[in-house]
Simulated scan of single mutants.
Amino acid sequence: MDHSDEYQDRPVRPYVITGGRAHPSRNTLRPETLLVANPEAQLPVSMTREKRSLVELCRGVLSVAEAAVHLGLPVSMVVVLASDLIDTGHLVVRSTPQRLVMPEIELLEKVLNGLRKL
């Protein structure tokens, strides 16, 4: 029997981890938002274990959803924690390109013709 799927109660309730808040200070964070730790920001001693773990996880680029899985927390809680860390400068949102550049039609036709030859 695999015990990983069993219910496990947490000794610390979610509202304690988020400081009693259910809503983030930023409404722009979504599960697919990419986060990266600010290497210049020093972590204060008073920072919670969850926030420290989130910053450590984001030493490489990580999405909010991936961070939630690694931390074992709901995405909504990670959004609150991440928004706090963005506000304090410990995390940075890695933006995606705003405008996609479409390839030339000739290039697309060459690719299509090449695929047809396969």
Rank of each mutant, 00 (worst) to 15 (best):
G72Y: 03
R116P: 00
N113F: 12
S46H: 04
R116Y: 03
Y15C: 05
M1V: 08
G20R: 06
S25C: 09
L71N: 01
T96S: 15
V93E: 15
E56V: 07
T28F: 06
V111S: 13
G89W: 09
A65F: 00
E32I: 05
V36K: 15
L112V: 10
P39A: 01
S46W: 03
L43Y: 08
P24T: 09
R30L: 15
G114N: 13
E32C: 06
E6K: 11
V64I: 15
E40V: 05
V55Y: 06
Q8G: 02
G19Y: 08
L81R: 02
L71F: 01
L29A: 10
P14W: 03
V36F: 06
D87P: 00
G114K: 10
N27S: 15
L107Q: 12
N27C: 10
L71S: 01
A82G: 03
L108I: 10
M1N: 04
E104A: 13
H23E: 15
V61N: 02
G20V: 09
I86W: 03
M1P: 04
P24V: 08
G20I: 11
R99D: 10
V111R: 15
S63R: 06
Y15S: 08
T48G: 10
V75D: 02
V16N: 05
V45F: 06
V92F: 10
R49C: 07
R26M: 15
L108D: 09
P11W: 06
G89A: 11
V16P: 02
V45K: 09
P11E: 12
P103C: 09
V79G: 04
V55F: 07
A22S: 14
P31Q: 08
L62C: 01
V78H: 00
E50N: 07
L100S: 13
R21D: 11
N38I: 10
R99C: 09
S63D: 08
H90D: 08
T48Q: 07
T28L: 11
Q98S: 12
A37V: 03
N27Q: 14
